[in-house]
Structure formats: structure tokens, C-alpha cells
Design a protein around this nucleic acid. Sequence first.
DNA 1: ACTCCATCAAGAGCGGTGCTCTCTTATTTT
DNA 2: AAAATAAGAGAGCACCGCTCTTGATGGAGT
Lengths: 232, 232
Amino acid sequence: MNASRSARERVRAELTREITEIARRQLAVEGAPGLSLRAVAREMGMVSSAIYRYFPSRDDLLTALIIDGYNALGEAVEVADAAGDPGDFTGRWLAVCRAVRGWALAHPHEYALLYGSPVPGYQAPQDTVGPALRDTVVYGKIIEAAHKAGALTPPDGFPAPPPVLAEDFGRLRAVIMPGVPDDVVARGLTAWTGLFGTVSFELFGQFNNTIDEREALFDHVMITLGRLVGLR
Amino acid sequence: MNASRSARERVRAELTREITEIARRQLAVEGAPGLSLRAVAREMGMVSSAIYRYFPSRDDLLTALIIDGYNALGEAVEVADAAGDPGDFTGRWLAVCRAVRGWALAHPHEYALLYGSPVPGYQAPQDTVGPALRDTVVYGKIIEAAHKAGALTPPDGFPAPPPVLAEDFGRLRAVIMPGVPDDVVARGLTAWTGLFGTVSFELFGQFNNTIDEREALFDHVMITLGRLVGLR
DNA sequence: ACTCCATCAAGAGCGGTGCTCTCTTATTTT
DNA sequence: AAAATAAGAGAGCACCGCTCTTGATGGAGT
């Protein structure tokens, strides 16, 4: 009965997988606003109402794609980080940055879904939280390892974060980079937001008519931000 | 004939203004995806097809809102910059940052329209370029003035930008901050993208479940980025 | 003063969307 | 074998952007 039960469930799982796959392909081509349940159904040879047996609403399908996206980006970052010398923290930081940018350029609509404007009515369910942190965890490990190795030599003359942030930083530290002092957490956060700010600027068109040498600029900005954290 | 011609044109201009105003209000409530020509027409007591006499397509209406948005943000930044002591460059930088964040928090959907995911099929027409740079011009003037006043003391130990960026920086310098060396342009760009990266992270939900003290974090990151440029 | 014509509102309509409801068929459970 | 559950099909609702045609209206040139 376990086998028979899983027989039907296997079909269901397979169809669910197929729906998300088609949806992901449509997302890549048309972007999130152009993703249509009816088009997915058409491509599957189903009638549109049948899709609702698998995803109660378009938002639920989007959620699946968002989770997939976070995992894909996270994996790309993990792979890039694992490829280099574990002791070369600056190299690892740069590799992570380039992995984020590379993945974003290769999957612009998915990146926009993850880090662009939120869909107005949409509330991200709890299942997205874990995958959403996957890349950040990699980053945190690098900073943590560099700090523990005494490899961080942050520049002088920068102010310490205000005490009111201690609680937020404590929570962040616990999840991402245990044992790292507030000062480093603050600089790390600055660099991390700078990374995504730069990628978003490029991808969302803010560099149009302005910056041509985008890879060179990106690398330079990332090196600068890494230096700010103490990587050299 | 000039008067009579403008009589009709005045009605047209007034209706156009009214359409954009209603559209802007709907945008503020529903967000860009929820902006509907038919809803605007309904609210105006017109039939939907009549709107097309004024805006050939939904994208053209969006363009008008985008231009309005850039101008509104630009003006907010200009006002904030003009309010303080012109010689207090650090204060002006902080004021500009806070103006951007404040405007974004007050007009989240408009900010998302300007700095969030681009609408897939949409190509920004040339008329948006000028307004889009309005805030950046204010920022450039601050950096330029600070540099000319010898008030920039950037921290040591940061790498110089690669020569390949000289052309991009030259173009940027000409428009935004004449007379400022490449090194400062590079750091300035880093800070500028960091500003919007931080605002976008907050507004687009990346700080959810993570950062509570958002204003304090924002100020600290902006001070850090300003320090990177040489403001202290 | 009177045509003439450009402008504009209105209406119908096309093909698309998300989503719901009902009906029938197929499969699993009892 | 019967009952219960799940899934697909189809029709339909209310919306969307956009197009086309039709009729009214008001300014322009004679």
C-alpha cells in the first residue's frame, strides 16, 4: 500500500516538477509578469483549471520558482567558493561576488524575482527564508574564517556601529558568522549590500549610458568593499 | 489663433494631468503591476478607449509616472541638500542619503518603479534620462565641492581603479563632478551604489526577520560609505 | 455665417489573464 | 465490490490591454 500510494504520488510529484520546469523556462523568457498559468497549462497539454490541482494560485507557483532561484544562486555561490584556496579569503570573497553577478547576468529575470521589486500583494512564505540565506551563509563563513585566522586588517578611521544595533547584529552573528565582533559584522553587512546594490544597478539599467566597463567596475568595487571589511 | 489653439490644448493638458494624477494614486496603492488603464478611465468617468487619446499605451503612462517619480525624488534630494550648511559636506551627504531613504519609504511603489526590476518588455525612452540623473547631480556637486575645498581625506590602503575605467569615469566626471580624480569618482560610485543597495534591501524585504533597527543601520552604513569617499 | 475637418468620446469586440464551479472519469482505500 | 478520494475537462465570471468603427462637437478657413 505504501508502493501504490506512492504510485499516484509519484505521478503528482512528477507533474509538479514538470509544471515548475515549464514555468521556470517561461519566467526566463518573459519575466515574472509574463508568467501565465494558462500558458503553462497549454504547454503541458492540460486545461488551465487542472493546474490548480497542483498550485492553488499563481503566487504559489511563483513561490516555488523563488525557492528554486535562491537554491540555484546559493549553489552557484557555494561551488564558486569551494573552487579556490580556502585560506585565500580575499579570493573567496571575490569568487562569491563574481558568482552572484554571473548568476544574475545569466538569469536576469530570476534575479529580479529574488532581489527586485516585490510583487505587491505577495507575502513570502516561511519556506523561502532558508534558501534565501544560502548565499549569505557562504559569505558569513568566509568572514568568520578570515576573522578567526586573523586575516582581517580593516582600515583605520571608520566609526564603530552604534550600540542600538547590538541586538540585530547578535541575531545575525548567531546565524551567519559566530564569534565575529559587531564592528566586523557591520562592515560585512555594508559590503554585502554593496554587492547586491552593484549587481542590481547593472542589471536594472542604472548603468545604461554611463558605465560600459561593467566587469572591471564590478571587480574594483568588490575589491574596495572587501578591503573595507579587512580583506586585502 | 494661438489663444484658441491653446484653449483646446489646455483642456487636453488638463485631462492628461488628471490621468497621470489618478494613475499615480493607483500606483501608490496597488503598485505598478496593478495599475490599470481601465481603472483610471473608470475613475475619470471615461470609457477606457478614450484614455488612448492621451496615452498610446500603458507603457507610455508608466513612462510619465517614471519621469514624475525621478523628478519627485530629485527634488526631495535637492531640498534636503539645500537645507543644511553648504560647507558641511558630510552633513550634506547624510542629508541626501536620508532624503533618498525617506522618499523611498514614503513612496515604495514609485521607488520600485524607478530602481526595482525593470518591466520586461519596457524600454526607457530618452526623456527619462535627464530626470533620472537629478539626484545623482546633487550628489556629484557635493563630492565635487568637497574635493575642491580639500575636505576629502580618504582612508589609506585602498587600491586605485584600473585604467580601463578611465573612459567611463571621464564621461561620468564631465556630467556629474568635473575636476574630480578617478580615484574619488570610483569611491563615489561605490558609495552611491551602496546607498541604493541599502535602500533596496530594506524596501524589497531583504532585511525582514534580520534587521529591526533599520534607520540606525542605514545611518551607520551611510557614514561608513561617506568615510570611504573621504568625508569625515 | 457656414461649411469642412480634425479631434474626441463612446461602444463593441478580440484575445488574453487568474480563478471558481460543476461534472465526469480514474484510482485508491475500505 | 463499494465507497471515498483525487484529478481532468469544460463552462463561465470578471478583469485586462488594445483596436476599430461610429457619431457628436467645436475650431478654422472661406
